[in-house]
Design a protein around this nucleic acid. Structure first.
Lengths: 353, 353
DNA sequence: GTGAAAGCGCTAACAA
DNA sequence: TTGTTAGCGCTTTCAC
C-alpha cells in the first residue's frame, strides 16, 4: 500500500507505520542496541529490510539533540593554506573520520578576536571537542567557556602552558638547539633569526633553542644574534621583510634561521630577489618542512615535525577515554639536514658593508 | 531519569523562568523576528539584558532540527594537503563563515567509495549544501541522493558535465593550449606529458589543450606527444615515475608538461635525482602553481587558477539564491611565465640515446 | 502584548 | 517481546 518513493522523507516513523510497529521498536533494532529487549528474528529482519529498501538514513541532527553528542570536532588552525597545517588537517580529518567523527576545519589567522568568534560558533554547534592552535596567549577565558558547555579542549602547536588542558606539540626548543648547534659547528659567528608573531609560544621556544645553542658554543647572544624579533607576524611578507633588513644591516649574518615555514618562504624569495646565493653567501635553515624545500638549489635544511603523529595524538586526546589528569604529548621533531647550511664564506669583504 | 535542571545550562527556558516570561517571548525577542507581535520596549530590554548576563548562546543543533537548515556546508576535496586545494579550502571556509556557514572539510582521495561514504555522512548531518570535486566519473547516483535529501550540490575542479548540477571550474583546455603554444613557438618538437588519473575530467581537458596546440603548430600528435598517459594516479610518486620513464625513453622530450601540481613536484624531484638540469637539458611547465615554484632554479612556469574566486563562486552557488536554471561558472586560468621554459637544446647528442 | 502548545526526528525510561 | 510516553532546546501557529 505504502510506497517508498513518495516525496515524503523516510524517517523511523515512516518505517514503523509501514510495518505497523512502534517507532521505538524500529529505533532499537536499527541501532542494534535494544535496551534489554529481545525481538523476534523475524521482526528484526522485517525492520532491517524495510529500512534498507526505503533508503532510510538516521537524522544525525535529531540524534544529537537527544544524545547530547554531535560526533563532530572543531579544528581551528592558524591557516590551512600553510602546508604544515594543511598536512596536519588532512591527517586529523582522516583519523577523526575513522573514529566516527566529522571535522569542522576553521582558519583562525592570528587574531584572538576571530578565534573567539569561531570558538563561540563551534560551541553553539555543540562540537564534542575543540582542537586548536591558539592565537590568544591567554587560554583561561577559552577554557572556561568550553568547560561550561561540556566541550573537551585540546591545544597543539603553540601551547601556552595552562593547567588542565592537554597539549600536543614537539620539542621546539631542543630541535632548534640541535639545528643551531650543528650549524654553528661549521664556524658561523653571526646568526640572523627571522621570527614571526612574538606572542607565539612555539616560536618563542624555538628562539630559546637558538640562544641556548649560541651560549653552549661560547658565543655572546647579544653580539652573535641579529634581529631576533621579526616583523611581528608569521607571514611570508614578514619573512621577506626581515631577510631584507638582515641583509642591509652593517654586519650581515652568515647563517639565517627562519622560525616557521612561511617565514622561510618569504626569506628565500627575498634572497632570490636580492640575488643572494644561498649556501654560498649565507647559510639558511628553517623550522617546518614545506613542499619543494628539497627541490630548491640548494635543498633547504629544515626541522620537520612528525605532523601525522601529532594529528593522531590530537584526535586521540579529543575523542578517546580520559582516565586521569590531562595528558600532554610531546613528540620529537626531526632534523632534515640538506645542503643549504655550509661553512661561512671567508671574510674577504669583511669591511665591505 | 532525566532531570530538567540537571545541568546549569542556560537555555531560552532558563531566561524565561528567571524573568517569569514564556519561552516563546524570549525566543521571539532574541531572534529579532517577532511574528507580528510588538513587545514593550521594557520587556525587550529585560530579555536582552538577561540573555547577555547569563551568557546565553542558542543551541544550533536544536534550531536546526526545527528549521531544517543547519547552516553547515560539506566541502569535499581530493586532498587538502595539495597546496591548490588547501588554498581553495582556506578561501572557501572564510567566505562561507562570512556568509554565516560552517564548513565540514573532507578529504576524499580519489576513491569513489570513500566519496560515497563521506557524502552519506554529510547528508545524514543535513548539510545545506555539498560542494565537491568528484572522484567518481558518474554523478547521477550522487545527484539523486542529494536531491532526495533536499541538499544543494555544486561541483568544482573536475566536473563531469551533468545536467542540473552547477559547475565551477577554469578553462582547462584553453589555458593548457596557450601554455603549450607559447612553448612550442620556442622550437620544441617532442613534448612529454605527465598525466595523472585518466578519469579526471580536468586532466583530460588539459591534455586536450596540449594536443590542440600541437595540431595548431603543425605537429603530428602521435609523433610529437610522448607518454600522454601517466601512471594512472595524480600523485607525486606517479609524477616522479613518469619523469623517469620519459627520460629513459629512446627519444627524450625537450619539453615536459605536468598536468597537476603534485605531478610537477614529483617530476621535478625525479629530475633532480637524475641530475637533469631544468631549462637547459629540458624545459618544464606545469598546471597549478605551488609554493616555492617561484623559488626554484630556474623558477617554474605554471598555469595558475584563480583559486580564491573559484572558492567564492562555490560558496555563492551553494548558499545564494537560485533564480533560474543551474548556473555554471568558468573562470580564466592565468599563465605565469617564468624561466623553466626555454629554447630546446641544440641536438648535439641527437643519436645519443 | 503575551502565552500555551504542537511539533522537528530521534532515544530511552517505564509500562504492558 | 513490544508499545507508551516523555523529553532534547528551539520555532511557530493560534489563542487569550
Amino acid at each position: 500500500m505504502k510506497h517508498p518513493h513518495n516525496r515524503s522523507k523516510v524517517g523511523i516513523r515512516q518505517i514503523a507505520d509501514s510495518l505497523s510497529l512502534s517507532i521505538c521498536t524500529v529505533s532499537r533494532i536499527l541501532n542494534d542496541r535494544m535496551g534489554g529487549a529481545k525481538y523476534r528474528a523475524e521482526t528484526v529482519e522485517r525492520v532491517r529490510r524495510a529500512a534498507a529498501q526505503m533508503g532510510y538514513r538516521p537524522d544525525l541532527v535529531a540524534r544529537s539533540l537527544v544524545s547530547g553528542k554531535t560526533h563532530a570536532l572543531g579544528l581551528c588552525v592558524g591557516d590551512i593554506a600553510n602546508p604544515m597545517f594543511a598536512e596536519f588537517a588532512a591527517h586529523f580529518e582522516r583519523t577523526a573520520m575513522q573514529a566516527g567523527y566529522a571535522t569542522f576545519t576553521c582558519n583562525i589567522g592570528e587574531d584572538p578576536e576571530t578565534e573567539r568568534r569561531y570558538v563561540d560558533m563551534l560551541l553553539a554547534r555543540r562540537v564534542d571537542a575543540l582542537i586548536l592552535s591558539p592565537a590568544s596567549p591567554d587560554l583561561s577565558a577559552l577554557v572556561a567557556r568550553a568547560q561550561r558547555r561540556g566541550c573537551r579542549l585540546v591545544v597543539f602547536d603553540r601551547c601556552p602552558a595552562e593547567a588542565g588542558v592537554p597539549r600536543v606539540l614537539v620539542n621546539n626548543r631542543d630541535a632548534m638547539r640541535e639545528l643551531t648547534t650543528r650549524a654553528l659547528a661549521l664556524g658561523h659567528q653571526r646568526v640572523g633569526v627571522i621570527g614571526g608573531n612574538p606572542h607565539d609560544a612555539a616560536l618563542r621556544a624555538r628562539l630559546e633553542g637558538v640562544k641556548a645553542a649560541l651560549r653552549s658554543a661560547g658565543l655572546a647572544v647579544r653580539h652573535a644574534l641579529l634581529a631576533a624579533e621579526g616583523a611581528g607576524s608569521t607571514t611570508a611578507e614578514s619573512g621577506a621583510e626581515a631577510m631584507r633588513r638582515l641583509w642591509s644591516a652593517p654586519e650581515r649574518p652568515t647563517l639565517v634561521l627562519a622560525l616557521a615555514n612561511v617565514l622561510s618562504i618569504g626569506a628565500l624569495s627575498s634572497a632570490r630577489a636580492l640575488g643572494i646565493r644561498i649556501g654560498e653567501e649565507f647559510s639558511f635553515a628553517g623550522f617546518d618542512d614545506f613542499p619543494g624545500a628539497e627541490l630548491m638549489t640548494p635543498p633547504i635544511t629544515v626541522v620537520s615535525q612528525p605532523v601525522r603523529r601529532l594529528a593522531e595524538a590530537c584526535v586521540r586526546l579529543a575523542c578517546g577515554a580520559t582516565p586521569g589528569p590531562p595528558e600532554h604529548v610531546e613528540l620529537e621533531a626531526a632534523l632534515r639536514w640538506r645542503e643549504s647550511v655550509r661553512r661561512p664564506p671567508p671574510r674577504t669583504h669583511a669591511g665591505l658593508q
